[in-house]
Write a protein that binds this DNA or RNA. Structure first.
Length: 940
DNA sequence: GAGCACTGC
């Protein structure tokens, strides 16, 4: 939608500069004029679109600051190395970016000086501050050099010019939620230098003289508690290219980028199968299953350098895009016109992750020489980069699911390809069922399921014995080592193993990756390693510890992508995030303790909990594969071969079997699927979970007694939220406070990552947080206050710092809120605000969450009204000290106790008023008459 | 007086 009016000549120009491999064509006057024209076009387009008013469900809301959005988009696409959607003049854009960067940095430094005023800084904090100042100076210096700004530069391929541009790559792979300000801080030149200095500074502080020459005795250190490993197996390499990487880079540099693409396409392992593949798709008109035995790990450097300029978020992409390309260009096999010659129905391709959808589509559009957003586009939440021309559309699986709601037969698609099916995400599993269903009455629809799973037969059986098409992958061999005996303390064992590797192997031959279960464990491991290294002094080479987990602030995450300095070794401590979501270069050793945290759901109590559980074999192999991406690797498993064979499950339990299904059921119902218990799931969820979900939806009056969707239910299904949140919004219409309620809903759906609580400043953080709880209004209203205060400061970043609030989460909440606001219109709810009517707001909340009500007990604990289950207010709640008699809560989590997270006081009468079908008068009266111990000890 | 694996709409 957004790209329609960008001129074609831009593409031509771009192609030329690509071929010339030259970067200094400065902008002529003519081009500046053209840029201006484009900008005007854009503005006009945005105005028109806004005037048109009616918006498609998934269309992003771009109205806040059109310019800002344009810059953001431009930035994103530049990183794609596509540059197709540039909306502002390059010159203007760069200038703005530089200025903004400077301001941000200055603010940052000032903030910190302000915050730490009168506080004695630790060594690390001082270093951090001076590090920031350094960057500021560097950026300032660079921005004064104005000549730098006007010229058009092709983004570098990252195998050129002395190495990888890590920040750039990383900023895409890691920034789940893009923050333009943070991204802009990542100046490839300045930060690199400052970082190096920073690192050197750290190293000198810790390890003393770096210049000391190593003597032979330095390496004779032996650990007291070595762990013995047995080499048990080797995962063979497949199709590993014999050519040395250096040679091939040199070779490929000599050619133009376009030639490189042509050339490399032919060397892909899939290339010889091209005709067979198309023939196979052609022969199986009704349903066709394609299983790609993908490269489990790794691909040689020369391929990586060319195929994933954008970063390497998704390891399956290289197979995926080439298949899509074949299908798209080979469509005339089926008697239709090729994608280039005009209209035919769309090809849809789903990915489990946003970044993957973006990067693969960028790659394919480049491959086909078309502009991203035209013939090839992507569609993810908050960002729809497609147009009427789009024929090959990449999207997240959840997005296709929502498209189903608007178009239950997917009439606009002729091919659906589900990629990464082995990950078995919730959305993928539901898509399976739906897509299989519509394939029955749409014989023209082709299905392709692409998976790296080993039990292809299971997938094939599910899709009515669809033929399996195997495509060989590519990987390096990985040696697998098991321990001789089980390890009692896997954390300690992991640390010992890492140090063992570090000491016995020459530095520089490869980094170490340790899989741990969570933030806490990672921090502990970090401390242990630091402590042990200290004990070794300068006897060993430098070891750089890099923690990585999703909640780690983005700036700190960037560290793992820095190249390892000469003579040192990195040890990466990661959660599951390193298993699928991101790829780290240079890992040669993987240490796998065999555990991860998994969410489980108990349908009986409606409680979710995160449990540390043993991983599956599939998961273990995936982890092992992480060591063989750039060369032969080794994987050390901290369990025995017997454990592996006998104790581990083959595959991870699919998400659909261990989650709350309320949302799934609502979606399926609104698609007209009534018999859910007999719905064709590949792995059916527990019947109990389904019934629980149905029960809840009935209670929320989303379903009637016959299990049919009601009008309320239909409206609820429009919102991409939990049914209880959706109900809350629908109910807010009655209480005239939809404005407040959507803010609350947005804040709640961001999760519990809003308040930031650094270990060393917990008191400050808690104080700041309590400000929002003034008057004991309850956690929901406190969240509303947070959002509104932030809004009043014009979404200020500094305000967030002052109040220990995570900017990233707030920005996400803002986006969600905007989306919800747009959806209100669709379900005909008026946007009304009444901030003073707290009762109305609380009643709306109760309308959605009445099944989650609890009553205070004598001992200070609570008991849920419906199930008489003992629960407690979470200590982080504003009501933890207040203990109101009745509360309604957002969710129940099981950690050390059963805690209610986000609670608000309510009046018991409301329960009967709002949900007379759910609560009897006696439920409430009974309780209020007993009240608190009035007489004396009524024991029992 | 406690703790947050990872995604996605």
């Amino acid at each position: 939608m957004v790209v329609r009016n960008v001129g074609d000549e831009r593409r031509v120009r771009r192609r030329t500069s690509l071929d010339e491999d030259d970067s200094d064509n400065s902008e002529s006057e003519e081009e500046i004029l053209r840029d201006q024209k484009e900008r005007e076009e854009l503005e006009r387009h945005l105005r028109e679109r806004d005037a048109a008013g009616t918006r498609k469900l998934a269309e992003p809301k771009l109205t806040r600051k059109e310019e800002e959005e344009a810059i953001r988009r431009s930035d994103a696409l530049e990183r794609d190395d596509i540059g197709a959607l540039r909306k502002v003049s390059r010159r203007e854009y760069l200038k703005k970016r530089e200025q903004k960067k400077l301001e941000e940095l200055r603010d940052d430094i000032e903030d910190e000086q302000y915050l730490f005023e009168g506080v004695k800084l630790t060594e690390a904090e001082q270093r951090e501050l001076s590090y920031k100042k350094q960057i500021y100076e560097l950026v300032k210096k660079r921005s004064e050099d104005t000549d730098d700004l006007g010229e058009y530069r092709m983004p570098d391929a990252y195998d050129l010019e002395g190495g990888v541009n890590q920040e750039k790559r990383f900023s895409v792979a890691s920034e789940r939620y893009r923050d333009p300000a943070a991204a802009e801080k990542m100046n490839p030149f300045a930060e690199q230098e400052a970082w190096e200095e920073h690192q050197i500074g750290k190293a000198t502080l810790k390890f003393g003289s770096k210049n000391r020459k190593p003597t032979s005795e330095d390496y004779q250190f032996v650990f007291e508690d070595q762990i013995e490993f047995i080499k048990a197996a080797v995962m063979d390499g497949i199709n590993v290219d014999q050519e040395s990487p250096a040679e091939s880079i040199e070779k490929s540099m000599a050619k133009s980028a376009f030639e490189k693409l042509q050339e490399d396409r032919k060397t892909l392992p899939i290339y010889p199968y091209r005709d067979d593949l198309l023939q196979a798709v052609n022969d199986h008109q009704v349903r066709f299953l394609l299983l790609l035995e993908k490269r489990v790990p790794g691909r040689p450097p020369r391929y990586r350098s060319i195929y994933t300029k954008r970063g390497i978020p998704n390891e399956g992409s290289s197979v995926n895009w080439i298949v899509c390309h074949y299908i798209a260009t080979g469509i005339n096999f089926w008697g239709r016109r090729s994608i280039f010659q005009g209209s035919c129905s769309m090809i849809g391709c789903t990915q489990p992750r946003r970044v993957a959808a973006m990067s693969v589509s960028a790659r394919v559009s480049q491959e086909m020489g078309v502009k991203l957003g035209h013939e090839v586009g992507y569609s993810i939440r908050f960002e729809d980069c497609t147009s009427e021309k789009t024929l090959l559309k990449y999207m997240t699986d959840g997005m296709l699911l929502r498209e189903f709601l608007g178009e239950p037969d997917l009439a606009s698609y002729s091919v659906i390809m589900v990629d990464e099916a082995h990950e078995r995400t919730l959305s993928t599993d539901i898509l399976f069922g739906l897509v299989k269903d519509i394939a029955r009455f749409r014989p023209d629809l082709k299905l392709l399921i692409s998976s790296a799973t080993l039990d292809a037969e299971k997938f094939s059986d599910y899709f009515d014995c669809a033929p399996i098409f195997k495509i060989p992958g590519r990987r390096f061999p990985v040696e697998i080592h098991y321990t001789k005996a089980p390890e009692a303390d896997y954390l300690d064992a992991a640390v010992v193993t890492a140090l063992q590797i570090h000491v016995t192997q020459p530095p520089g031959d490869g980094d170490i990756l340790i899989f741990l279960t969570g933030q806490e464990e990672i921090e502990t491991a970090e401390e242990i390693i630091k402590h042990r290294i200290k004990g070794l002094g300068t006897k060993i080479a430098e070891l750089i510890i890099c923690p990585i987990y999703a909640n780690l602030p983005t700036e700190l995450q960037a560290k793992i992508f820095e190249p390892t300095p000469e003579g040192a070794r990195k040890v990466v401590l990661a959660t599951n995030i390193a298993e699928t979501s991101l790829t780290i270069d240079g890992i040669k050793y993987v240490i796998d303790p065999g555990f991860s945290k998994m969410k489980s759901y108990n349908p009986r109590t409606g409680m979710e909990s995160l449990l540390v559980t043993p991983i599956s074999k599939a998961s273990a192999n995936q982890r092992a594969g992480r060591s063989g991406r750039t060369g032969p690797g080794k994987c050390f498993r901290l369990y025995t071969a017997y454990n592996y064979m006998n104790d581990l499950e083959d595959n991870t339990v699919p998400e659909i079997q261990r989650t709350n299904l309320a949302n799934v059921v609502l979606s399926l119902k609104s698609l007209g699927i009534h018999d859910l218990l007999n719905f064709d799931f590949m792995d059916p969820p527990p019947a109990e979970a389904l019934l629980k979900a149905l029960e809840l939806l009935f209670a929320l009056s989303a379903l009637n007694k016959l299990g049919e969707l009601t009008k309320v239910g239909r409206r609820m299904a429009e919102f991409p939220l939990d049914p209880m949140l959706s109900k809350m919004i629908v109910a807010s219409d009655k209480y005239k406070c939809s404005d407040e309620i959507i803010s609350i809903a947005a804040m709640l759906s961001v999760g519990n990552s809003i308040f930031y609580r650094p270990k060393d400043k917990q008191v400050h953080a808690d104080n700041a947080r309590m400000n929002f709880h003034m008057g004991n209004v309850g956690d929901h209203i406190a969240l509303l206050k947070v959002y509104n205060s932030w809004k009043e400061t014009n979404f200020s970043t500094q305000w967030c710092y002052e109040n220990y609030i995570q900017v990233r989460s707030m920005k996400r909440a803002r986006d969600i809120r905007d989306q919800l606001e747009g959806l209100l219109e669709r379900v005909e709810i008026e946007l009304t605000s009444n901030i003073n009517d707290l009762e109305g707001i609380k009643k709306s909340i109760t309308s959605g969450f009445f099944p989650h009500s609890a009553k205070l007990q004598k001992n200070g604990s609570y008991r849920t009204v419906k199930h008489a289950q003992t629960v407690h207010i979470h200590p982080s709640s504003g009501l933890a000290q207040v203990l109101p008699r009745w509360v309604v809560y957002h969710e129940l989590v099981l950690t050390t106790k059963e805690y209610m997270r986000q609670a608000t006081e309510l009046k018991p009468e409301w329960l009967v008023e709002i949900a007379p079908h759910y609560y009897q008068l006696k439920d409430v009266e009974d309780a209020s008459s007993k009240k608190m111990p009035r007489g004396s000890g009524l024991v029992s």
